[in-house]
Every structure is written in structure tokens, then in C-alpha cells.
Design a binder for these strands. Sequence first.
DNA 1: CAAAACAATTTTAAGCTTGAAATTTCTCGG
DNA 2: CCGAGAAATTTCAAGCTTAAAATTGTTTTG
Lengths: 173, 173
Amino acid sequence: MGEDKFDTSPEWVDGETKALEAPGDHRAELRLWLRLLTCSTLVESEIRRRLREEFDSTLPRFDLMAQLERAPDGMVLGEVSKRMMVSPGNITVLVERLTESGHLNRTTLPTDRRVQIIALTPFGRAEFEKMAARHADWISDLFAGLSAKEGGVLMDELAKLKRSVIASLARNA
Amino acid sequence: MGEDKFDTSPEWVDGETKALEAPGDHRAELRLWLRLLTCSTLVESEIRRRLREEFDSTLPRFDLMAQLERAPDGMVLGEVSKRMMVSPGNITVLVERLTESGHLNRTTLPTDRRVQIIALTPFGRAEFEKMAARHADWISDLFAGLSAKEGGVLMDELAKLKRSVIASLARNA
DNA sequence: CAAAACAATTTTAAGCTTGAAATTTCTCGG
DNA sequence: CCGAGAAATTTCAAGCTTAAAATTGTTTTG
């Protein structure tokens, strides 16, 4: 453990630690990635479970409605796809179902008939607001063991990670 | 922004901040969750993409083989399912395909014929090792923007989050 | 203006994932 | 030993997800 790049707490483990690493030793990064993945998996499955139990809904549907909530005039399909970081074909299916169930309506832009615009119906908005309130409570409870300060540190470190990942993606593009 | 529970860096934002929050204001937690989810989604989709491109494989298959790698005598299906945090039925499908392709072999425990034991074949192990080496490089590159210290901090904060989540799950069980 | 290029979306084929129901096999109390 | 119940796994139905190909519509250019 002592030879990991990202060793935990003890600050007295100095820079020499690095020199002890075998070339290509990526254990620290792997452990960090695994922990990150575990955290988000735990939270995500709990949210999915509760959305299903309390609202007979799913996370993708919730996410789609969340994107639409702050766009009273609707949003173009492609824009939704980008924001949700999922494939366009995926959006097609989700929108189909949510339109059938009366949560969304879709319009073809008159000036460019390739473009589909979707928006929440009043019913969809009301349903979403119920779910969003409960969702916020669930997250709050799941994160309750973190103090404000700890949460702030986590926010900052995740921001750095995000930058690191985006930089790597750009490098390898 | 200043009223968020998990405000970022400025340490001079004192405890009074909390008093300003409306009851049921969970914005800070939500933003933290969103950022966590963004990070893991970004990393995860990149890993999926590369596994597909370089090895024509998938993340679930890789994860399954990873579980098996340190169990030379094989592992019981149920144990794999628990460790991977996925449903038992899911494992059935994955194992079917990986057995067909020669990466795994499965045995029924003679003393309890309900129990299936799976293990990597030599071929499967060789394939996994190739993938694991590349996987480690990818992660290392994606995380390269974090210093050892920052990585350590992130590890620690994620450990706290994990404890918080597990505690919440236990409370609501 | 026609053809090519481009853009937005949908379709398709394949695989992953889940919860619930079903199946098979064991275990244990009587 | 027998039957109830528990345990391990599989099956099933439904939904999510993706990449790639196809479709439809618009724009640019020779």
C-alpha cells in the first residue's frame, strides 16, 4: 500500500514514495477509479430503485425531464442528447414513451422540418416536480454524512478530476 | 451560489451560511452528486469505447474477468454477482457468452449441484492480462492531471462519501 | 439549378440490466 | 424418510444503450 501514488491521509509520506514505483505501476489510480465507481454505482442504484418504487419511473426518464424543466419553450432533440451525454437514438426511444404517456409533446420546427422540439406538458411538469422534490431528499440523505466542508473539498477535487479527464480526452482525440 | 451547503474553496464562508438556507434546500448536495456522476460517466464511456475498439469487448465482460483473475480456483456465481453489485440473472448471461468464447469454464460443484463455479481458462487469463495492462494505462492517463496529493485527498473524501451512503442505505433498510 | 455535402433524426441489431417468477437442489425438523 | 422452506441459478419480459446504417431535409457549390 505504501507505494501507491495516491496514498491516503498520512502526509509524512514524502516525494520519495514516487521513486519506489515500478514503471507502469498504476495501482493508485486504479484504486481511486474503483472507489469513484463504487460511490456512483451505490447512489445510482438506490435512486433507480426509489424512482421505480415510488413513481414507477426510471432514471433516464427523470434525467430527460430534468433537462426540459428549465426550457419552457422546449429543446431540440440533439441538444438534449448532448446534454445528457447519450446517443441520439437513445433519446428517440425515451421521447416516444414519454410522449405516449403524456409527459412530453413534440413539434416539428416549421422552418426546418428535420428538427424536433420537445417540451414538458403541464402534466409532465407536475409529475416531474413531485419526483424532483423526493429526489433531492434522497440525495440529501445519502450525502448527509458529509459536512459542508467535506462536501466542498470533494466538489473541488472532482472539478480537478473532471478537468484531467477532459484534457486526456482532448489529447487522445 | 454563496448559499450552497458545499460551497467551493473560499474558507472564509463561515457557519452562518447554513442559516441562510431555506428548509429543504438541497442544491449543494445535488450539484455534488451531478459532478460525481459526470466524472464517472466520462471515464466509464471512454473505457467502454476503448475496450470495444481495441479488444472488441465490453466493460461488464472485463469486470467479470477481473473478479476471476485473483481466484485461480474459480468463484461461485453468487459471489461474483455480489462483488460486481449486479443481479444474478445478469451474471448468467455474461457467463454464457464468455464460456462460448472460451474465456471461462464452468463446473457444477459435485457436493451441491445447485452451485456453479466459474474460472478463467488459460486463454481467458491471457486475454484479460492484455486488456488489464491497457486499461491501467488508460485510467492513468485520464487521471494524470491529479497530483499524488490531490488523488489522496479525493480517495479520502470518497471514502467518507461511501460511508455516508452505506449508512443512509442501512438507515432506510 | 443540380449534385454533393451536410445535418437531424430514426431505425436496426446486438448487448446489458433488472425484478420477479420459475426451477432445481439441498437442508432440516419431525 | 418426508415435506416445508431455503438457497442458487435461470428464465422471462421489459427497458436502456450504443454504433452504424438509413432516411429525410437543408445548404452549399460548381
